[in-house]
Design a protein around this nucleic acid. Sequence first.
DNA 1: GTCCAGGCCAGAC
DNA 2: GTCTGGCCTGGA
Length: 284
Amino acid sequence: MEILNTPVDIDLEMSLTSGQAFHWKKFKDGYGIVSGNSAWYIQVEEDHWKVFGSSSESLLDYLDGKKNYCPMRCRLKEDLTLAIFVEEGRGLRLLQQEPWETIVAFILSANNNMGRIQRSILSLSEMYGEELGTINGEKFYALPSPETLSQLDPKELRENCGVGYRDNYLIGTAKLISDGTIDLNAIGEMDLKEAKATLMKLPGVGTKVADCILLFGYHFEECFPVDIWMERVMETLYGPFTSRREIANFGAEKFGHYAGYVQQLLFHYSRTKDSLKPGERNMQ
DNA sequence: GTCCAGGCCAGAC
DNA sequence: GTCTGGCCTGGA
């Protein structure tokens, strides 16, 4: 166990619940997080964290804790339209996840809700993933590898993990990766356009899912994924637009290499503020 | 019961 | 290339 002074610019709760990562659990005294073969149990105390399991050093890496967000945030605040979002998003981090876990998570995200995505990820890991050990009394499991996932029966996967019609997307994607057709490491060396085109060869990966994988799994921070929530908030702030693609282009153009962070700020805000939720958007 | 949830895919034009 | 309908499933 290691003691870590609560990092001033990291809001653990906000970063985990902001819809970028799904392989974590809330416990009564903190959080359990898995990334690759690392697992942490974090007890959140008044002014410090107790970190069990993998090293606190690796946890800080995962939380992008070595990067100073101040310059970026100050710069974005100069845009008065964004100032409120920057302020409300204090402590929101772009988590440093690995490609494979974001591929699985965002294939599952299509036409789905966050609670169910999280449940599917956790049951996938518990049933088919490698056990990473018992930490602070809780068992942790890694996400199953592409090799393991590629050999599963779709019906079994659907029934055991509640993935719905995405069963064959997951298995098909796992096959293309495990047989070497798609090389996940090579994607990281490509430019954005080629990387995106390559990811979109995977079944279940379209424009939006590819953008999420590129941003959260490969850290192309100029990506600006546009989903239904982003469509709503962007329409309110900068509309009107005629399509999601137009919004994506607008965002990438306007925010440049801060686009990914801006997307995350807007997404988080629109998910947590009633004024932007469906059915209440048109009320004064 | 209906609607919606961080869309993708196949088929039609 | 653009547009449309269908899709597992669980919760509000």
